[in-house]
């Protein structure tokens, strides 16, 4: 509903954004795919011969790939489990009548705004360090052997740190969803004789279902790319026990300078993220129609 003049103005005004994003997407993406078929290492300059599927073969059969995949899944799954369950409970609690809800909310949201390198280092040193960290001090105070988080349970430690960062996000979104629930619906169900548990199960949870799905999908996209927390705490170790796919690709490309191999890994990471993205986009698209 507009005139020809405004339509052509609109095309003109949208084009910078489209051109930039198109370039941003296509150029690196096609280069990554191109590199992934080359034998290309920055340390050994010279010709970069075509390598066929070799890079993919070596990347996929490398034992550290298997470990990285497992770590990635555990990291994403673990954080999702903690943040979604914790987020539902926390949101339910925050939705109750209380004093100072604003301040409590502000405190609970704070971790989301802490930059990843800070939270990684603070947890590693001030909390999880077996000698000087708070957990170490507490264990000593109780007469227990302090836990050396990053050598005994390295991946779980990272899961905990990342969960701390993302729990506020899940809580905030689920709380928003919960607050949009029509009070009359709850009152009607109460009149129908539903107790508080059935109200949660049959009214609140279905109402939150959509928000929960969104939380899961969006977090998955971000969690697949967890990088800084690993870099500053364990460097992927001990061994490869905290190396996820992102970190593995970083190691092979920027530390071992193997462009071909890193690119093959990059393509795999893109495919993996797209599987999640398709579902997410579908949900967003549906909402756009409404």
């Amino acid at each position: 509903m507009a005139t020809k003049a405004s339509r052509s103005a609109a095309r003109l005004m949208i084009s910078p954004a489209v051109v930039l994003l198109l370039g941003w997407m296509l150029v690196p993406l096609s280069l990554t795919i191109y590199f992934s078929f080359l034998r290309y290492n920055l340390i050994t300059p010279g010709a970069n011969p075509f390598a066929g599927w070799d890079n993919y073969y070596w990347f996929l059969t490398d034992p550290s790939f298997k470990a990285a995949m497992a770590n990635t899944l555990l990291l994403v799954g673990g954080v999702l489990l903690i943040t979604v369950v914790g987020g539902i409970l926390f949101a339910l609690l925050l939705d109750q009548p209380m004093w100072g809800q604003g301040i409590i909310r502000i405190m609970a949201i704070a971790p989301f705004f802490v930059m990843p390198t800070v939270s990684g280092l603070v947890w590693k040193n001030m909390f999880m360090n077996p000698v000087n960290g708070i957990f170490g001090h507490i264990a000593q105070g109780l007469g227990l052997q302090p836990l050396d988080f990053f050598s005994q349970i390295p991946l779980l430690s990272i899961i905990l740190i990342v969960s701390w960062q993302w729990l506020p996000f899940a809580t905030l979104i689920l709380l928003t969803a919960l607050q949009s629930l029509d009070q009359e619906q709850l009152e009607a169900s109460e009149m129908d004789g539903a107790g508080s548990f059935s109200r949660f199960l049959f009214i609140m949870l279905p109402h939150m279902a959509r928000a929960i799905t969104v939380v899961i999908l969006i977090q998955t996209i971000f969690l697949l790319s967890i990088f800084a927390e690993i870099l500053v705490t364990t460097n992927g170790g001990p061994g490869v026990s905290t190396t996820n796919l992102t970190y593995l690709i970083y190691v092979s490309s920027l530390l071992q300078f193997d462009v071909g191999m890193g690119s093959a890994g990059g393509v795999i990471a893109i495919i993996l993220a797209n599987i999640v993205a398709i579902f997410l986009m579908r949900m967003i698209g549906k909402n756009l129609d409404a």
């Binding site: 997407m25 993406l29 996209i221 796919l245 920027l254 890193g262 890994g265 993205a277």
Partner: peptide, 19 residues
């Protein structure tokens, strides 16, 4: 167009790190 723009956000950064 809008959906496509959003989809570029879903691209994992590590996938295009090298280029």
């Amino acid at each position: 167009v809008l959906m496509w723009m959003l989809s570029t956000k879903m691209l994992p950064p590590v996938g295009v790190l090298i280029p």
